[in-house]
Simulated scan of single mutants.
Amino acid sequence: MGVGGEGVGADGGRNQSTTDDGEQFADAVLALLAVARRTRGRLQPLFEDVTVPQLVLLDAVQACGLEGIGAISAYTLLSQPTVTQQAASLEAAGLLRRIPAEDDRRRRVLTLTDRGEQLLAAKRDLVADRLSLAWKSLTPQEQSIAVPLLRHITDLVSHLT
């Protein structure tokens, strides 16, 4: 049963409330995307040495850099040329390294440098501090579902493209 009422009518067909539930979900996801974009702008002043998109790329390198540019591209939903270009600037800044893959020396994988790991950890802490007020405002029940639900919605939305 959805937020707006029953999902299936007495005749077995979809009723208006199912459509309304889908529209409410779409509205909520679009609102989440909009607030994420605004939050990105509000966080940028905290980062003198890296941009928020670069921070996202550093996070992706930590998560899946050893799988190569394609994996980072899929993780961040950025094109491979964009990832390659951003990685080059982060490499020049001493935050990551491009190294030959062990299984195919022609292919490059990405790893964070010690400086990149330290910067990513410090910036994550800043973001966590900023978002902790929102987290603390959630009830224990909401906290127990918030992270898995956000990750699940992220996965669902990322597969729409």
Rank of each mutant, 00 (worst) to 15 (best):
L57Q: 04
E142R: 15
T51D: 05
V52F: 01
G22Q: 13
A128T: 12
R115H: 06
L78S: 14
S89R: 05
G2D: 04
L120Y: 01
I72W: 06
A10Y: 04
H159I: 02
V109E: 08
R115V: 04
A34N: 10
P53T: 12
L149E: 12
L160F: 05
L160I: 04
L95S: 00
L32D: 04
V3F: 10
G9E: 12
G68V: 03
L120E: 08
S89Q: 03
A10L: 15
D104Q: 01
A74C: 06
R40N: 01
D114L: 12
A63R: 13
D21S: 14
Q44E: 07
Q54R: 14
L33T: 02
S158P: 03
K136E: 15
Q62I: 07
L126F: 05
E23L: 15
G2H: 05
V109L: 08
L55N: 11
H159S: 03
D11T: 09
T84K: 01
G116V: 00
L43F: 10
S132C: 06
R106H: 00
T82C: 02
Q143N: 09
S158H: 09
F47N: 14
R108M: 01
A26T: 14
L77N: 09
N15R: 13
L160S: 10
R124K: 09
Y75H: 13
L90M: 11
R107N: 00
Q85A: 06
W135D: 07
G68M: 04
T51C: 07
E23S: 10
L119Q: 03
R130I: 08
L149D: 09
V50C: 09
V83K: 01
G2K: 06
G12Y: 04
A128R: 09
S73T: 08
F25M: 14
G13V: 10
A34W: 01
T76D: 02
A134M: 07
A71M: 10
A122S: 11
G70L: 08
D114E: 13
A146V: 07
A92W: 00
A93C: 01
K136A: 15
L150T: 08
R37H: 12
V147D: 07
L156D: 01
V50N: 06
E23Y: 15
R115S: 11
L119N: 02
T139Q: 05
A146E: 08
E91V: 02
L126H: 07
E6H: 08
A146W: 03
L77H: 03
V3C: 04
